[in-house]
């Protein structure tokens, strides 16, 4: 079993951190996992992405052409990754910054206003956790509790006060995905 997740967006949207939280949760649940960022001469506001691969045996390639799932937090990332997700896979797109509908009908997708949900919780920086919560509803590779535990165990002390609102962001993302996801048609 191997699950590949690409998380992509603008630098500053927390795409690398969302991937790390997923990787921590996988490790803590005794899975094999790799996390690899796109790295380059990039800056805040430029594109950023990471690939997380979870599996039950030693991971081979840390990159794949066609991931099982993608979280895309902006339009350029949707343009790049929607066509690459494997048939039957999952796509979470940030509707706050993307004003078009999904084109694929052979994957499970959810278009979630992640910025608005994050802002309603008091902090736009929760966008990544809203999207991660939505993804784990479409692709239940780990329970939300595993992500919450990973945040508790690995977030630096100075950020601990933000734990409850992060849990809420994950939950709101999951609830939205439960309600609004578009299942594979045909």
């Amino acid at each position: 079993m191997q699950i590949e997740v690409v998380i992509a967006g603008f630098g500053g949207q927390g795409v690398l951190f969302a991937g790390q939280v997923l990787a921590y949760a996988a490790m803590d649940n005794n899975m094999e996992v790799t996390w690899i960022p796109s790295y380059g001469p990039e800056m805040r506001g430029g594109t950023a992405n990471c690939t997380v691969i979870l599996g039950d045996e030693a991971i081979g390639s840390p990159l794949v052409r066609n991931p099982k799932a993608a979280i895309v937090l902006n339009l350029p990332s949707l343009e790049k990754y929607e066509s690459l997700v494997v048939p039957g896979g999952a796509l979470v797109a940030n509707a706050s910054l993307i004003n078009r509908s999904p084109q694929r009908t052979d994957i499970n997708s959810v278009f979630i206003p992640a910025n608005e949900i994050a802002e309603s919780l008091g902090d736009r920086r929760l966008t990544n956790m809203v999207a991660l919560g939505a993804l784990l509803t479409l692709l239940p590779v780990l329970p939300l509790q595993a992500i919450e535990q990973a945040l508790r165990d690995h977030l630096p002390e100075r950020h601990r006060r933000l734990l409850p609102v992060n849990y809420e962001a994950l939950k709101q993302g999951a609830i939205f995905a439960e309600r609004e996801s578009i299942e594979i048609s045909g």
Binding site: V33, W35, I36, P37, Y39, P62
Partner: peptide, 10 residues
């Protein structure tokens, strides 16, 4: 190589 350097793994 850059991949080993940049990658995170348990």
């Amino acid at each position: 190589d850059g991949n080993i350097g940049q990658m995170m793994e348990p």
